[in-house]
Amino acid sequence: MARRNDHTREELREMALASAERIIAQEGLAGLSTRKVATAIGYSVGALYTLFSNLDDLCWQLNERTLSCLMAAIKEVDETDPVACLQGCARIYQAFAEQYPERWRLLFEHRSNTDNPLPDQLSTRIGGLFEHIDGCLARLYPRIDRHERQLRSRILWSGIHGLTQLEHSNKLFLPDAMTAEDIRIHLIDSLLAGWDKESHHA
């Protein structure tokens, strides 16, 4: 078993999070435990608890890492056309869930066993995701106030997330000529068309 001083604290944390990702990819969320992570990196469970206060903390940090990865991909979308940007962000979200299904599930299925609030850094990551959508909507609808813009960004995300969840669960029940991408494109276009009408009548 490795000694604690064989790696820096940051190196050990990176090893632990990478191992945790591999474990949930191979065994699902139910297979994750601090003991398995410690065994995978060759350290004791006690050494692991110098980095994570408990399994909840490990899961929160995994989620923060997952959101960072997702946001890095979303930020690569061309923002020149806000409509195309929204469609691109939704496409990346669906593709991410398909590529990393267990990490995506952990974002929404992990429930803390304690009364600890959501960590600040994780809240910041989540806020960054919505700010990106808000930015696209601000350029499309410059006259709406902040509250309305935030409301619309949540409506958009809820629709895309629901579609992604159904696709991930094989519960879309699509006819042969239809794809999840068809629904995604039409969903966003329809919402924007409705909001365009509201803007013209305002």
Rank of each mutant, 00 (worst) to 15 (best):
T124M: 12
E167Y: 04
L137A: 10
E98P: 00
I183L: 10
D81W: 04
G42D: 01
K36N: 08
D134R: 11
D145E: 09
P117H: 01
A72M: 08
D182S: 11
F173G: 04
Y49H: 15
E21D: 14
F173R: 09
R91L: 13
L129P: 08
Q87G: 05
A90L: 03
I183T: 05
L67T: 03
P101Y: 00
F173S: 11
G128T: 10
E198Y: 14
A72E: 13
D56M: 06
A25W: 00
E167Q: 14
T39V: 13
K171Y: 06
P117Q: 01
E131F: 09
Q26R: 12
E14T: 15
F130A: 09
P82K: 00
Q26W: 00
H132W: 09
G162C: 07
P82I: 05
G31L: 03
G135M: 12
H161S: 06
G46V: 13
H200R: 15
I23L: 04
T124K: 14
A72P: 07
L70E: 04
L107V: 02
I92F: 00
Q150T: 10
S153K: 01
F108Y: 09
L166C: 09
Q87A: 11
N5D: 13
E79N: 13
Y100M: 05
L32C: 10
A25V: 03
S33W: 00
A73C: 12
K197G: 11
L166V: 05
L58D: 02
T179H: 01
K75F: 12
H186M: 11
G28K: 00
Q94L: 10
L29A: 06
I92R: 01
A2H: 14
S44D: 03
L151N: 12
L122P: 10
R184Y: 02
Q165S: 07
M71L: 15
T34F: 00
I41P: 07
Y49T: 11
H186G: 08
S19W: 00
T39R: 12
L140G: 11
E131I: 09
G135D: 12
E102F: 04
P119A: 04
L48F: 08
I160G: 03
L51M: 06
T179A: 02
N116R: 15
F130K: 06
D145G: 15
N170S: 14
Q61M: 03
G31S: 05
N54I: 07
E109V: 04
R146L: 14
Q61Y: 01
H7G: 04
Y93P: 02
L174G: 04
Q150M: 10
F108T: 05
A84M: 10
S169D: 14
V37H: 02
